[in-house]
């Protein structure tokens, strides 16, 4: 994978860094140390159990599986791995035919190695298709193993959960993302300032894929990574701006807060963008417990209304005024 990427980039194409810097060894995977260390042992010893990896996007589920399959099967990868993701047709017929046929296929592998069927984004499979998978999984277990990746394990039907070991991935910490970003920055010689990386980490919210994409986008657009450029490229409301808004509300300067909101709105950010950032700010803002609780509640309700289609400027103003009311009632 690495070799093909370098040859491509030498032609002048810039392949996504997400692909270019995707770890090919299980041990290089960032975060979720416990899970990764176990996968490493599987990669070494073989005999992979059926696995479900579940966790939020960008935490390395697919990467883990791919790296694992590569390490397990080496040169046999092409013939011994069947990879299906949501973009492939995975209706019940495919499960019955393609997967079953693959499971019956004979591939000569070293002892302890099995064919691997990778089902990415398995939670988007219909429950009928999952039902059809159930038996296949059992019958061919001595030649074929399954690795499923999904965001929420509860969308996988129980019989399948029962046949798999469940591995939970959690969001990456900021340090972990920062470490990886630094590697990429060094390798690509991206000029940057620490605040820029910080901004990227904020926009990524524990999602490594997002972080790398944002880094590359900023680099491609401005050739320099600082805070300003990052938020321009990622097209998210500047968190500092939003933070000021919240501070103004708490300190009783409602007019300033409103004009701040107006500015943001006039820049063309949709209410969803604004409220998403607002929620993240409130979550990390150091304020009294009661205020945080009330702010979160109101943000939640406003977000709900916006999702229902009432995405107007008025809603956002109303949200700010509800914040103020909460402040006023609580203030001594």
């Amino acid at each position: 994978m690495a070799s093909s990427s370098s040859s491509l980039s030498s032609h002048g194409y810039e392949i996504p860094w997400v692909e270019k810097f995707r770890p090919t060894k299980v041990k290089d995977i960032v975060g979720n140390a416990d899970a990764v260390s176990r996968l490493q042992i599987i990669a070494r010893d073989g005999n992979m159990p059926n696995l479900i990896l579940s966790g939020p996007p960008g935490t390395g589920k697919t990467t883990s599986i791919l790296a694992l399959a590569h390490e397990l099967l080496g040169p046999n990868y092409k013939e011994a791995v069947l990879e299906l993701n949501a973009s492939d047709d995975r209706g019940i017929d495919v499960v019955r035919n393609k997967i079953k046929m693959f499971a019956q296929k004979k591939v000569t592998l070293p002892a302890g190695r099995h064919k691997v069927i990778i089902l990415d984004e398995a939670d988007s499979m219909t429950s009928g298709a999952q039902q059809a998978l159930r038996r296949t999984m059992e019958i061919y277990s001595n030649s074929t193993r399954f690795a499923l990746a999904c965001n929420t394990s509860s969308k996988i039907i129980e019989p399948i959960q029962s046949r798999c070991a469940l591995v939970r991935f959690s969001r990456l910490s900021d340090d972990e993302i920062l470490g990886r970003l630094k590697v990429v920055v060094d390798a690509e010689q991206v000029p940057c300032v620490p605040e820029g990386l910080e901004a990227i980490i904020f926009t990524a919210d524990g999602d490594m894929r997002q972080a790398l994409n944002n880094l590359q986008a900023t680099y491609a657009g401005f050739r320099f990574v600082n805070q300003e450029n990052v938020f321009k490229v990622c097209d998210q409301p500047h968190p500092l701006h939003v933070k000021n808004m919240v501070r103004n509300v708490i300190e009783g300067r409602f007019d300033d807060a409103c004009s701040g909101l107006k500015q943001l709105y006039d820049l063309g950010y949709s209410p969803t963008d604004i409220i998403t950032t607002l929620f993240r700010i409130i979550k990390n803002y150091d304020m009294a417990e009661y205020l945080k609780l009330e702010f979160m509640k109101e943000t939640g309700f406003a977000h709900m209304r916006i999702c229902d289609g009432v995405g107007s400027y008025l809603q956002l103003c109303g949200l700010l005024s509800k914040f103020s009311i909460a402040c006023l009632t609580a203030k001594a």
């Binding site: 965001n151 409220i275 998403t276 929620f279 979550k283 609780l293 979160m296 509640k297 939640g300 977000h303």
Partner: peptide, 18 residues
């Protein structure tokens, strides 16, 4: 996923903090 995620986490936060 983002929208669902926000609703989930606000709801959880409100419940717990409440």
């Amino acid at each position: 996923y983002v929208a669902e995620n926000i609703i989930q986490s606000t709801a959880a936060s409100v419940a717990v903090r409440g």
